[in-house]
Each structure stands twice: as structure tokens, then as C-alpha cells.
Measured scan of single mutants.
Amino acid sequence: KVILLEDVKGLGKKGDVVEVKDGYARNFLIPQGLAVEATKGNLKEL
């Protein structure tokens, strides 16, 4: 699961917690600054 930092077409809006494949999160969303891993600490910051 990841928390979206920006609106991502076809996935969700900023602040949404979405389930995506590990590779998509690690190789695209997180490096592009579009999402962060949905850890307990990150979820509390919402």
C-alpha cells in the first residue's frame, strides 16, 4: 500500500491510500515523488 502525494490518473487523488504492485510503487511512484509507503508513521501524518 502507498499514500499518494499527488493526484495520479487512474489510481486516485492526493492523500488516498491505495494498493499497488510492489514493483510499480518502488520503480515508478516513489522515485517520481508521487507516493510514499503506507507505514504506520506515514498514516499518522495524514
Rank of each mutant, 00 (worst) to 15 (best):
Q32L: 13
K14M: 07
L11F: 07
G41F: 08
D16V: 07
K40T: 15
K21H: 14
P31V: 15
R26Q: 13
K40A: 15
A25R: 03
E37L: 08
G33A: 06
I3S: 03
V18Y: 03
F28D: 05
E6N: 12
G33Y: 06
L43H: 07
V17L: 05
V36C: 06
Q32A: 11
T39M: 04
L34C: 03
V2Q: 01
P31S: 15
G10W: 11
Y24A: 04
D22T: 10
V20A: 03
V17T: 09
K13A: 13
L29K: 00
K14D: 02
F28I: 11
V18W: 03
I30M: 07
L4F: 02
A38T: 07
E37H: 07
E45R: 02
I3G: 00
G33M: 08
L46S: 10
V2G: 01
D7K: 07
I30L: 10
A38K: 05
K9V: 13
G10V: 02
A35T: 01
G15P: 00
L43Y: 09
G10C: 06
V36G: 03
K14Y: 05
A25T: 04
V8H: 04
E19I: 14
D16S: 12
A38F: 08
E37I: 11
E45V: 05
L34K: 10
K21A: 13
F28K: 05
E45L: 07
K13N: 12
Y24W: 10
G12R: 00
I30W: 03
K21Q: 14
L29C: 02
L29Y: 02
I3R: 07
Y24N: 03
A35K: 00
G33S: 05
K14A: 09
K21Y: 11
V2N: 01
D16W: 15
Q32C: 14
K13G: 08
A25P: 02
I30E: 02
K21G: 11
G41L: 11
D16G: 05
G12S: 01
P31G: 14
G41S: 14
D7P: 09
A35Q: 01
N42W: 04
L43W: 04
D7I: 04
L11A: 03
D22C: 09
V2D: 00
K14I: 09
N42I: 04
D22E: 11
V36Q: 09
K9T: 12
V2A: 02
L34G: 01
A25W: 09
G41R: 07
F28M: 05
V18I: 11
P31Q: 14
V20R: 01
K44F: 11
V20H: 01
L43P: 05
G10F: 10
A35R: 01
G10K: 05
K9N: 13
V20Q: 01
A35H: 01
G12C: 01
G41A: 12
L46M: 08
F28Q: 07
D16A: 12
A35F: 02
K9C: 06
K9Q: 11
N42D: 11
E6M: 14
V2I: 10
R26K: 15
N27G: 14
G41Y: 04
N27T: 10
T39L: 06
V18P: 01
Q32M: 10
K21M: 11
A25Q: 03
K44H: 14
L11W: 05
G23M: 13
V2K: 01
K40L: 15
A38H: 10
K14S: 07
G23S: 09
G33V: 03
K44Y: 10
A25D: 12
K40I: 15
D7L: 05
L34N: 02
V2L: 12
D22I: 08
E19K: 13
E45I: 04
P31F: 13
A38R: 03
L5F: 03
L11R: 02
R26P: 06
I30C: 03
V8I: 12
A38C: 11
K13I: 10
L34P: 01
G23E: 15
Y24K: 02
G41N: 15
G23K: 11
G33F: 08
L46D: 13
L46F: 13
D22Y: 12
N42G: 05
L11P: 00
G33D: 03
G23D: 15
N27F: 12
K21R: 14
P31H: 15
D16Q: 13
A35L: 01
K21W: 12
E6Y: 12
K1L: 13
E19Q: 08
N42A: 08
L46T: 11
A38E: 11
D22L: 07
G10Q: 07
L29P: 00
G15I: 00
L11Q: 02
K14W: 03
Q32D: 06
G12Y: 00
L11M: 06
V8E: 01
R26T: 12
Y24T: 07
V17F: 05
L11K: 02
K13C: 08
K44D: 15
N42C: 05
E19A: 08
L34T: 03
R26M: 13
G41T: 15
N42L: 04
V2S: 01
E19N: 09
